[in-house]
């Protein structure tokens, strides 16, 4: 428990450092605000165009899709705020040898590298996504009971854990392959496909988005649990998978670390 508290403290510290850095460039906040808002409105307009021709998309109503876009933006914000910048720096650290600095500090190195960089302005996405999600929930209203809300919270956390572990595994591959910044760009492209429910995609693409790039777990499945369409077995399966991913990524991290020789010495 104390270790967890310490990690949260470290995250807060990293956030504050990120904020200090970002406050030098205050105009960026407005740039981010405009970009995120336009991005969100574009996504909503895309859904509105589709629902101008139909009232259900593969069983999903318009409000359910708005909730999906809310989760898409929220999780995308979390990835863009902490996970992706930190993983980029980790890969750079492996290549340049600056990872030494993280390894010599008296805290768990995996925790340190996972939160080493925070892009504070991306909280705009988190806030906008959460706001849209709340609006969508209030419109879905009576269909959502406490059981669904709890299931949603659990699955959402599990989904974020899966995405984090997946990206950590990708970044850890840098220990063996050294140069592969582009791998995160591929993930970014595939993530875009997550703004629609994965159920509409043909089997090969659905399988890709579920198992190869596990976007489905962070977006579609949480919203399914929110509207009460998730099978209990899928819920349990997602939680187990998250635990598996967390342990697996930890093992791969440890294994990769043994390959790291440092470049500065």
């Amino acid at each position: 428990m104390r270790a967890v508290l310490r990690d949260v403290g470290l995250l807060w510290l990293s956030f504050r450092l990120g904020a200090l850095d970002a406050l030098q460039y205050r105009a960026d906040f407005f740039v981010q605000l405009v970009q995120s808002s336009v991005g969100l409105v574009t996504a909503l307009a895309g859904v509105a165009v589709v629902f101008g021709q139909t009232d259900r998309l593969a069983g999903w109503s318009q409000d359910e899709l708005f909730a999906l876009i809310g989760v898409f933006t929220l999780v995308g914000g979390l990835i863009g705020m902490v996970i992706r910048p930190s993983m980029e720096r980790l890969m750079e650290g492996v290549r340049l040898g600056t990872l030494d600095f993280a390894l010599t500090k008296p805290a768990d190195a995996q925790v340190l590298v996972s939160i080493q960089r925070v892009d504070v302005w991306r909280t705009v996405d988190v806030v906008l996504g959460a706001g849209l999600l709340l609006i969508a929930i209030s419109r879905l209203g009576q269909h959502i009971g406490p059981a669904q809300a709890i299931a949603f919270g659990l699955v959402l956390v599990a989904g974020v854990v899966i995405i984090y572990s997946f990206l950590l595994i990708l970044a850890t591959l840098a220990f063996w392959l050294v140069r592969l910044e582009n791998i995160l760009v591929i993930f970014g492209s595939m993530y875009e496909a997550g703004r629609w429910p994965v159920g509409i995609y043909p089997p090969w693409l659905r399988a890709t988005l579920t198992f190869i790039v596990p976007v489905a777990f962070a977006i579609t499945i949480p919203v399914e649990s929110l509207v009460g369409r998730l099978e209990p077995t899928t819920l349990v399966g997602t939680l187990l998978l998250a635990a598996g991913f967390l342990v697996g990524s930890r093992l791969i991290w440890k294994l990769g670390l043994r390959h790291y020789t440092g470049a500065s010495a």
């Binding site: 589709v50 021709q53 509409i200 995609y201 693409l205």
Partner: peptide
Amino acid sequence: YLVVWTTV
């Protein structure tokens, strides 16, 4: 979008 519209 191809997938979305064929579904619709």
